[in-house]
């Protein structure tokens, strides 16, 4: 029971990071129908910024806000350079473009930085623990869960209570109708990328604090986790993305802990089997989004 409680907290901590990543992907998908495989590049770029800032002798107090700023800037730059030109194009075209961005960013770091791992210090507090009865809890998990909850609450407030949020939701519902009602497409799309950049930036802080390193392909794993979580939750559903992230994190930790030693190596495989089963029974994911077809 004690181990189960610890696993649940660990899983929620891990899942919170996935939820932030998935939410950023869901926001973009809602507005553009773009499944953004370049989302992980925000982590890659953030990782190198963390490395360079750390190499300059600055601490995580500087790195953390800078990572968010850089993530937002990178998201906007990618939109401006790549996705702007394929707005309204077929979903497949946008998908290929996102792959292209992913490969280009990766290649740039290969060619102009290094193929080798770049290390930076993790904050010392992230492995500190405290006991609640027999359960040992990592401070890091508590911080991640709390910050994620605050971020999600703030995101919900932005989406529900601001004109930008209204525009974004309208665009997600029916982009063309929203435009006819006066929503400025440029503004709402850039806003969506900026929001996804903020969410990825916060996720990047926690991801990089754990990793303590970066490479040109550092963004692949977080991107895959984010996309998977968004698919589990139901593409385009913001609540589904959060739910998908948390469930994915819980499934990974619980399976790794509960599977017998001999087959623990199949954890990821079992996770994918569960996801496949989910799609058999709920092809649209946990929360199905009804949406008008784009013209």
């Amino acid at each position: 029971m004690t181990e189960l409680a610890q696993n649940v907290i660990d899983g929620l901590g891990r899942g919170s990071i996935y939820a932030l990543l998935a939410l950023g992907i869901a926001v973009i998908f809602g507005v553009m129908h773009l499944l953004n495989f370049a989302h992980g590049e925000l982590i890659t770029v953030s990782g190198y910024v963390a490395y360079w800032v750390f190499s300059a002798g600055l601490s995580w107090y500087w790195i953390a806000p800078l990572v968010v700023l850089v993530s937002v800037g990178t998201a906007l730059a990618i939109e401006q350079v790549a996705f702007r030109w394929v707005r309204g194009a077929a979903d497949f075209t946008m998908l290929l473009t996102s792959f292209g961005v992913h490969f280009v960013v990766q290649a740039v770091f290969f060619m102009y930085v290094s193929a080798s791992v770049r290390n930076f210090d993790r904050p010392r507090w992230i492995t500190n623990t405290f006991d609640v009865g027999p359960v040992t809890i990592e401070v890091f998990d508590v911080v991640v869960i709390a910050v994620t909850a605050l971020t999600l609450a703030a995101t919900a407030a932005v989406l529900q209570r601001t004109m930008f949020g209204l525009s974004l939701r309208a665009a997600a519902e029916d982009f063309d109708a929203a435009r006819l009602m006066g929503v400025k497409s440029d503004r709402v799309i850039r806003g969506a990328f900026a929001l996804s950049g903020v969410l990825a930036g916060i996720a990047a802080i926690f991801w990089l604090m754990r990793a303590g390193q970066t490479t040109p392909s550092a963004g692949i794993t977080p991107m895959l986790k984010g996309v998977l979580a968004a698919l589990i939750g139901g593409l385009g559903s913001l609540r589904g993305a959060v739910l998908g992230g948390l469930l994915l994190g819980l499934a990974e930790v619980l399976l790794r802990s509960r599977l017998p030693d001999g087959i623990a190596g199949l954890t990821d495989g079992v996770v994918f089997v569960l996801i496949a089963l989910l799609f058999i029974f709920r092809p649209g994911g946990l929360i199905t989004v009804s949406r008008a077809e784009r013209v």
């Binding site: 790549a82 030109w85 394929v86 290929l96 473009t97 292209g100 490969f103 280009v104 290649a107």
Partner: peptide, 20 residues
């Protein structure tokens, strides 16, 4: 025009990604 631009962007990106 937008479709042509989109196609060009994708080709350019993939070309850059794959290298020469």
């Amino acid at each position: 025009k937008r479709r042509i631009l989109a196609l060009l962007a994708v080709v350019a990106l993939l070309g850059a990604a794959c290298g020469s």
